[in-house]
Structures are given as structure tokens and as C-alpha cells.
Computed example of a mutant assay.
Amino acid sequence: MGTQNRLWYQKKRTWFLLFFVICTGLFISTLPKELPRNVAYLAKAYSEPEIAEGALAIAKRNPKIIALLGELEPMHTFDMVEGSVGYSKTGDSVAITIGVRGDKKIKNIRSKMDVLAEKVNGKWEYVNIKVRIKKPDELKQTIPILVK
């Protein structure tokens, strides 16, 4: 009488657990090998927000950016997650790509800011800052903000 009264999911519990373990293993095996490094870079970039914020402040003063996008909005929490971050092996240079938005309400405008900075005497100095307008196609261009 013991096995007759058990519910169907109690009878199949071992198979469900095995299926779950196999699916989890397959999912983990498909993750990119660089994922831990990328997460570490992202965490480091969040701990040094002055890099991206300083570049944004420089870009805000560019007249061409103001004409196309309007006044640039401050960075949002997930802007770096949507972009990319890469540090050199020694950690003394960084390349960051983040989305930027202006207060002009242009439909479907997509733009990114690329920042390359190096740490000199404990302070970040910008090597290159540019804004890429990706969409709409009629506005598509790259605007150099700072080139050294």
C-alpha cells in the first residue's frame, strides 16, 4: 500500500533531479570562459566610476554632441552592464564603452561613448574619448571628443 498512495511527482523525483542536474551542467558548460574575468572587470569599473563620469563630463562640453543629442544625461546604474569594460593585465589602462543619452527626444537614437584611459601616477588620464551614434542611419557617425 506504500507505493500506491505516493503522488506521481514523488515517484518521479529522482528523474526530475537528474534532469535538472544535467540541464544545469549543460548551461554552465556553454558559458564563455572569459565570464569570471569580465565580471571582475565590471566590478572594478563600478568601484572607479570617476573614469566614465569624467569622460561624460568632457563629452557634455562638446558643441557637436549638444547639437545632436542635447544635454547628456547622467549615467544610469546599468549603463556599464549594457556596454563593455576591459582592463590591461597590469590594471593601468582601461577601455570602457557605455551608452549615452541626451535630453533631445529623437526617436530610436542609439549612441555609445568609447573611453580609453591610462593610470599615470595614481590618476586616470584620458587617451581617447569618442561618441558613436549608431542609429538612426541618417545620424550615424563617430564624433572624436578627445584624442591624444
Rank of each mutant, 00 (worst) to 15 (best):
M1R: 10
G2M: 09
T3Y: 11
T3E: 08
T3N: 14
N5H: 10
N5E: 07
L7W: 01
L7S: 10
L7V: 04
K11D: 03
K11W: 03
K12A: 15
R13L: 12
R13F: 05
W15S: 11
F19D: 10
F20P: 00
C23R: 02
F27S: 15
F27C: 11
I28K: 12
S29Q: 08
T30M: 12
P32C: 06
K33A: 14
K33S: 13
P36L: 04
V39A: 09
V39M: 09
V39Q: 11
V39G: 01
A40T: 13
Y41I: 00
L42W: 12
A43E: 15
P49F: 02
I51M: 10
E53N: 11
A55S: 07
L56N: 12
A57R: 07
R61W: 01
N62D: 15
K64L: 15
K64S: 12
K64F: 14
I66P: 00
I66W: 13
A67G: 02
A67C: 00
L68F: 04
L69G: 03
E71F: 00
E71Y: 10
E71H: 15
L72S: 04
E73G: 02
E73W: 01
M80S: 13
M80G: 10
M80Q: 15
G83V: 01
S84C: 06
V85W: 01
S88T: 07
D92Y: 08
T97G: 08
I98R: 14
V100M: 05
D103V: 00
K104E: 13
K107G: 01
M113D: 09
V115P: 09
E118C: 04
E118R: 04
V120Q: 09
G122D: 04
E125M: 10
Y126I: 11
V127C: 03
N128P: 02
I133S: 15
E138C: 01
L139Y: 09
T142H: 03
I143R: 02
I145C: 08
I145Q: 06
L146A: 03
L146V: 05
V147A: 02
V147D: 15
V147G: 02
K148M: 03
